[in-house]
Simulated assay, not measured.
Amino acid sequence: MLGDLIAQLDRPDVTAGVLATLNPAVSESIAHRAADLSMSPAEFVTGAVREFIESAGDDLWFQLLTQIRKAEDPGLVAVQTILRWVVTEQ
């Protein structure tokens, strides 16, 4: 589930596994953003997901729930969706 995955995102091997499931352009963007902030990808991903959980409005939660509703691995799909949003936000 989402909680289990989030609890492990600070582990570089878990983060690398999640990033490997994303479009390479998204993964590269995350790596560049992390480097720009002098963070590891695991730190950046953990922070981005936690920020979403703490501050996302109802509309974003509804969109996320719609994405994961029928997913085989809802936790992974949730994290993938959040990270795609992070790199595409204006």
Rank of each mutant, 00 (worst) to 15 (best):
H32A: 15
L2V: 07
S38G: 08
L5Y: 13
Q90G: 15
I6Q: 08
A7V: 10
R84C: 05
A20D: 15
D73H: 13
S27A: 15
S55P: 03
A71Q: 07
S38F: 13
N23C: 08
I68R: 03
T15R: 00
A71S: 13
P12K: 08
E89T: 15
A48H: 01
V79F: 00
D13A: 14
V86S: 08
W61V: 05
D36E: 13
V79L: 00
K70L: 08
A78H: 04
G17T: 06
G17C: 03
E54A: 12
I30W: 02
P74F: 00
P41I: 05
V79R: 00
L83H: 04
L83T: 04
L83P: 05
D59H: 08
V49R: 00
T21C: 05
Q8E: 14
F62P: 00
A7S: 14
M39T: 02
V45N: 02
Q80P: 05
L37R: 13
A16P: 10
V18P: 05
N23H: 14
H32N: 14
T15M: 01
I68V: 14
P74I: 00
F44A: 06
V18S: 02
P74H: 03
V86H: 04
A56T: 01
W85K: 01
R33E: 12
I53F: 01
G47T: 06
D10Y: 11
W85T: 02
G3P: 08
V49M: 01
V87S: 03
A16R: 15
A20P: 09
D59T: 10
P41G: 04
V18R: 01
L9F: 12
I6P: 04
R50Y: 03
L64Q: 00
T46Y: 07
R50M: 06
Q63N: 11
L2M: 13
A35S: 13
S55L: 12
H32L: 15
K70V: 02
A7Y: 13
M1N: 14
L37E: 11
V26K: 06
A25N: 10
V26D: 12
T21A: 11
W61A: 03
A31S: 15
V86N: 04
L2E: 10
L60A: 12
W85L: 10
G47W: 01
Q67C: 00
D73I: 03
V14I: 15
V77R: 12
L9M: 09
L60K: 09
L9A: 07
T66K: 09
T88K: 10
M39P: 04
V26H: 13
I68E: 08
E51T: 12
I82M: 05
I82S: 02
L60T: 06
V79I: 11
A78Y: 03
D36T: 14
R50I: 07
K70G: 10
P41E: 07
I6C: 09
R11Y: 10
M1E: 14
L76Q: 09
